[in-house]
Each structure stands twice: as C-alpha cells, then as structure tokens.
Simulated assay, not measured.
Amino acid sequence: MSEVAIVTGGSRGIGRTVALTLAARGAAVVVGYAGQADRAAEVVNEITAAGGRAVAAGGDVGDENVVAALFDLAEGEFGGVDTVVNSAGIMKLTPIADLDLDDLDRMHRTNIRGAFVVAREAARRLRDGGSFVMLSTSVVGLQFPSYGGYVASKGAVEALTLILARELRGRNITVNTVAPGPTATDFFFEGKDQAEIDRMAKQPPLERLGTPEDMAAVIAFLTSPEGHWVNGQVVRANGGII
C-alpha cells in the first residue's frame, strides 16, 4: 500500500517543496491551495511529469466542509490518507498597538481555526501508523517585535500539536510541529527591504537564510519510518538562532 499525503498550502513556498519531496519518495499527493490554482496546477504537473500521482484541490482551510472534501478526494483518488502536512498560513506584521483586528481575525481563521479543522479531520481519518505535521514559527521563542498577532496564532498551533499527539495514543500516529526560522520564500520576503533580509540572514550561526528544501527535509524525516519515534514535539528548524 503506497503512501497518500495531503499538503495544505501546497502551491508555493515550503508547502510546494514538501509536496514535491513527498512525491519524490513515492507518495501520491493532494495539493491543497487557497487561491492560486495555476501554481497548484504547476506542482501537480511537475509531480505527474516525473511519474508521480497528484491532484489539486482549492479552498479555505478554515471551512470544515472544504477540508472534509480534501480528505474525501484523497480517499476517492488514492484510497486513504497516511500523511498530512498543514502548511497553509498567512502573516501580517505590525506592532501590537497598530494591529488591525480584521487582520488579526484573518490570521486566526487560517492559522488557528484552519489548523484545528485540518487537525480534527486528520485525527478522524488518518490511517493507523500515519503522521501529521503542522507549521509554526521560531518567532514563538524569539519574540521579534511586530510579530505579535502572527505569533499568537502559531503559539496555539504548537499547543494543539502537543495535545493531539497524546489523544491519538494507540493508533501509532505521530503528531509534530516544525517551526522554521527565517526561510527564503515569497512569504518571508514580502514587506522586507534588503537590509532587513541581510540582517536576518546573519542571525543563525550558520549565517544564511533557511530554504524550503531545508524545511521539507525535516518534514520528510518526521513523516518517514525513520522519524516515527519523534512524536509530540516542536522542532525549531532555524540554523541555531537563540
């Protein structure tokens, strides 16, 4: 029985690279996306051109019916679900004093409600022996100014991970969160000038930004048989920033 994976936020950035990485190891992949159907189609085409199996499905991860349909698609096309990676997320950076509450609500719908909806469906429908990975941010521990609203949403993701891992006792399912540091994606570069990017790249002892490939390698390990003993953890993949 071959692996079947769902990757939300799979049309760009870390999610895109995760989808390609899991497909390269033989998984059939459902590429979830919010509003970029063309980019999701590119990911599917790249996977299928290499001999893999993939389909794309769009929609809001905060909508429980959309997420249920995503799992229905995986089961209908490929026979079940073994791996779920929830990479969908949005970020608005501003000091807490200036944060528009509408922006806060939008972040929380995707980053908290969306994470919870995907986690709930994964808990119900992952096959025994499967794995679930969510994405947080190392800023939960680093506390950079202007990240308050975003970190509030990702702190909730980390707490949810720790509880879900314990609730799935007896099913041999692992639940972990990967918390990237500064990573070279469009998501990261948005709104930053070159001086800020250079400064952040120098923060890790390894003196560079992370890459989507760095993060995908960590996620691939956590969802592999070799990584199955890691459970209920938050992995801060940030090159050593403290």
Rank of each mutant, 00 (worst) to 15 (best):
A24Y: 03
V175G: 09
D100Y: 02
Q194I: 15
R171L: 12
A195G: 06
V29N: 01
A237L: 07
G52E: 10
P145N: 04
I242Y: 13
G58Q: 05
A115H: 12
T174L: 13
I173C: 10
F132V: 15
E167I: 10
M91G: 00
G79P: 05
G13W: 02
E75A: 14
R169K: 15
G130E: 04
V55S: 05
Q194C: 09
L126Y: 07
I90C: 00
V81L: 08
D63A: 04
A34C: 12
G62Q: 01
F188I: 04
M91N: 02
A119C: 14
A97T: 03
T211L: 08
I6K: 02
D102N: 13
V140M: 07
A68L: 15
L209R: 09
T21Q: 03
Y147E: 03
A201M: 11
R199D: 15
T137Q: 11
R109T: 00
P182Y: 14
F116W: 11
G155Q: 05
Y147T: 07
F144P: 06
G232V: 08
A217E: 09
A122S: 10
S131R: 13
I96F: 12
E167V: 07
G62E: 03
R199Y: 13
R125Q: 08
P204L: 04
A216H: 01
T83Y: 03
I242H: 14
G149L: 00
N231K: 05
S131N: 09
I242A: 14
D198I: 06
P95R: 02
G9Q: 02
R109W: 01
T48N: 09
A184D: 15
D193W: 08
V7T: 12
E226N: 10
G59W: 01
V133P: 03
V157N: 08
L206M: 13
V235K: 11
G32L: 04
